[in-house]
Nucleic acid binder design. Structure first.
Length: 358
DNA sequence: AAATATGATTCACT
DNA sequence: AGTGAATCATATTT
């Protein structure tokens, strides 16, 4: 019973409270049906996993869909059938033994009944005891089977165990988005879908990627500098293009954004440094009402490049490390509640009070 | 083989 | 629900 269960899988099925209720009336139960929720759960699980269900039918047991796991799934099912075989044979064995033992005891009692009177109640009681014993054994069997199935599941169904790196292309796309939205790298649901589509991965994978990226980027920005510069430079050209276009004809037509061809729809709820970016770029009042979001997405990369050229070439702030973006020391992006504003050393005198009039 | 990178999961928090 | 942090388990690099 060692069952050093595979890590990362918690057995929620058996919380080990065998039986504390003593007032059980066993007479009705002729096979095995004490109203024990524990056993019910085990049974349910075994059924759900296709262990105790019908013989290996054609179709997969449950979870409609999920047809993509093909090769590895067969391996999984092979082991599952193995478990099921063991389970069934054991179960049968127990049942048989139970019956044999019961008849044996009955015979003994009958034999004794010649010498002394034995009430039928007594017989019934004996049978009940025997059945209880054996059903507890069955329960153990079911429990260990459940464990085996769980281990098997964790072995095969845990996606961590068959991790594959995304394609180079996919990471390109994701990184492009990340570094061009560095001031607010939280893609909306739609954006996630878009990215997922482009990268041919799922939306949750996109979410995972951004979650990992965010925290790892924040963890040590230094390691990601190169990458950031790379992607910033990569998109700088197009960004400059777009921004220039937007500034030039700030009245007619829409800024043809290269990426995200269709509807832009990256809504930026509150980008605190947006105004500053705008100002530093445009110099004067520019109301990016309609182009706001699109331009903003580019501004990040532009700013990165700008701050880089500014900070790198002549060590503006003394320290070579420039804090690339508004990651305030305390937390980071997430809705900087602290009104301490953006403390970016690279940008000289802050005091940016853009025209508050909308 | 050790170190690092990376995708996924879990848990707590909000 | 969505996220940050810690962690796991595998891939890749060194």
């Amino acid at each position: 019973m060692g069952t050093a269960a595979a890590p990362g899988f918690r057995v929620a099925y058996m919380t080990a409270h065998p039986d504390r209720l003593s007032g059980l009336s066993i007479r009705g139960a002729q096979e095995e049906d004490p109203p024990d929720p524990q056993l019910m759960r085990l049974d349910n699980m075994l059924l759900a996993e296709g262990v105790s269900g019908p013989e290996k039918g054609g179709s997969a047991p449950a979870s409609g869909g999920s047809s993509d796991n093909s090769i590895e799934h067969s391996d999984y099912r092979a082991k599952l059938t193995q478990i099921r075989q063991i389970y069934h044979t054991e179960l049968e064995k127990y049942e048989q033994a139970c019956n044999e033992f019961t008849t044996h005891v009955m015979n003994l009692l009958r034999e004794q009944s010649r010498t002394r009177p034995i009430s039928p109640k007594e017989i019934e009681r004996m049978v009940g005891i025997i059945h209880r014993k054996f059903s507890s054994i069955q329960m153990q069997l079911k429990q260990s089977t459940c464990e085996a199935v769980m281990i098997l599941r964790s072995r095969f169904l845990d996606a961590r165990r068959k991790r594959r790196n995304f394609s180079k292309q996919a990471t390109e796309i994701l990184n492009e988005y990340f570094y061009s939205h560095l001031s607010n790298p939280y893609p909306s649901e739609e954006a996630k879908e878009e990215l997922a589509k482009k990268c041919s991965i799922t939306v949750s994978q996109v979410s995972n990627w951004f979650g990992n990226k965010r925290i790892r980027y924040k963890k040590n920005i230094g390691k990601f500098q190169e990458e950031a510069n790379l992607y910033a430079a990569k998109t700088a050209v197009t960004a400059a293009h777009a921004v220039a276009a937007a500034v030039q004809n700030n009245q007619t037509n829409s800024p043809t954004t290269p990426n995200s061809g269709s509807s832009g729809s990256f809504n930026l709820p509150n980008s605190g440094d947006m105004f500053m970016n705008m100002q530093s770029l445009n110099g004067d009042s520019y109301q990016g009402s309609q182009v706001g979001a699109n331009v903003q997405s580019q501004v990040d990369t532009l700013r990165h490049v700008i701050s880089q050229t500014g900070g790198y070439s002549d060590a503006l702030g003394g320290g070579s490390l420039y804090s690339p973006h508004n990651l305030n020391a305390n937390g980071g992006w997430q809705d900087a509640t602290t009104p301490s504003s953006v403390t970016s050393p690279t940008e000289g005198p802050g005091s940016v009070h853009s025209d508050t009039s909308n």
